[in-house]
């Protein structure tokens, strides 16, 4: 540990040494003049990684410098989010932050919160679906909801991510909206959506609340079916799946979002340049086409909109997590 702190001291002194070198470059307005790092807190090949890579490739064309996607994984996203916020705010390190930034600090995992960043743009949001095994006796969400209400607490088991993760909160929020307690359905923590879907297909759990794109392979394989999504409107890629509102009259929606942010203190001219580049990337048909083909939802918020979106999300998450007894400290 002394080793690490010594290292960070040295790194800090190194940054202090190089910072004056970087400043004149900014003044000259020739940013960017070297490759940019785009940090992703999740693993290579996953949904966040794929979104970051397509955004990165479009930014690269716009800014004229390579944009390298760097995966910093582990700790339920803490490692990568921390790497983004502690990088030098010189415009050469940005990152894709995800909904976890509004959740982890309530759980007491980190001090980081939306305030730790310079928000640049919100690009994507995916609502959770309610998935059951294809041989499940519940043909629609109504039948499932009635069964959950009728049985004693703990009869049903659900999975989708770790304890206190976004899909856990999705379940909790849905149960609360139905007037039940957050733990009426027992949560079985899993290491992500894919193992949870396997558990569902193997008959280990009754419900998986993860996004429909994550459940897609199992649905296509005829092993699972999606009963509803917790969103204001249907997903055009999965148009046959109804929303909670139209079936149960519950207006509850939540989502796993992804956006681009920089370390706090990014100079305003660079932030503005990123704003226009990201807007162009978002409007690029290539981005739209890629996101649609994977079933990912696209949403746009500019820097200011993203900031207030996160602030609102952070507040709502805090409330939901305290309500569910998932908040700590």
């Amino acid at each position: 540990m002394t080793l690490l702190s010594r290292r960070s001291l040295l790194a800090a002194s190194g940054a202090a040494l190089t910072a004056p070198l970087a400043m004149p470059a900014l003044g000259q307005g020739n940013w960017p003049n070297r490759p940019i790092q785009l940090i992703v807190p999740w693993g290579a090949g996953g949904g966040t990684d794929a979104t970051a890579r397509i955004v990165g490739s479009l930014l690269e064309r716009d800014l004229g410098q390579p944009v390298n996607v760097v995966n910093r994984t582990g700790g339920s996203g803490v490692v990568g989010h921390s790497a983004i916020s502690t990088a030098a705010p010189d415009g050469y390190t940005i990152g894709m932050i995800t909904v976890e930034i509004t959740m982890m600090h309530w759980q007491g995992l980190t001090q980081l919160n939306p305030e730790s960043y310079t928000p640049l743009a919100l690009m994507n949001s995916d609502p959770p679906g309610v998935q059951v095994a294809s041989n499940s006796p519940y043909a629609d969400i109504k039948a499932l909801a009635d069964a959950i209400k009728a049985r004693p607490a703990g009869t049903f088991k659900a999975s989708g991510t770790g304890q206190g993760g976004i899909w856990h909160l999705a379940l909790v929020g849905w149960l609360q909206a139905m007037g039940l307690k957050g733990d009426h359905v027992r949560w079985v923590p899993s290491n992500g959506a894919a193992p949870a879907m396997q558990e569902l297909a193997a008959g280990g759990v009754d419900i998986v609340t993860c996004s429909v794109p994550e459940a897609r392979a199992m649905i296509d394989a005829g092993r699972a079916k999606s009963l509803a999504i917790m969103a204001p409107a249907r997903n055009p890629m999965f148009a046959q799946v109804p929303t909670l509102n139209e079936t149960l009259g519950i207006n509850y929606s939540v989502g796993a979002w992804r956006g681009i942010a920089a370390p706090k203190g990014l100079p305003a001219p660079i932030a503005q340049r990123y704003g226009t580049a990201l807007k162009a990337a978002y409007e690029n048909p290539q981005f739209k086409e890629f996101m649609t083909s994977r079933g990912f939802g696209t949403v746009w918020q500019d820097a200011a909109g993203f900031a207030s979106f996160m602030a609102e999300g952070d507040r709502a998450m805090g409330e939901a997590m305290r309500g569910a007894g998932l908040a700590r400290g």
Binding site: L3, R6, R7, L10, A11, S13, G14, L17, T18
Partner: peptide
């Protein structure tokens, strides 16, 4: 290895 850990970042 230790030297690499300490100096590779600044150097």
């Amino acid at each position: 290895s230790l030297a690499y850990i300490l100096v590779s970042d600044p150097l």
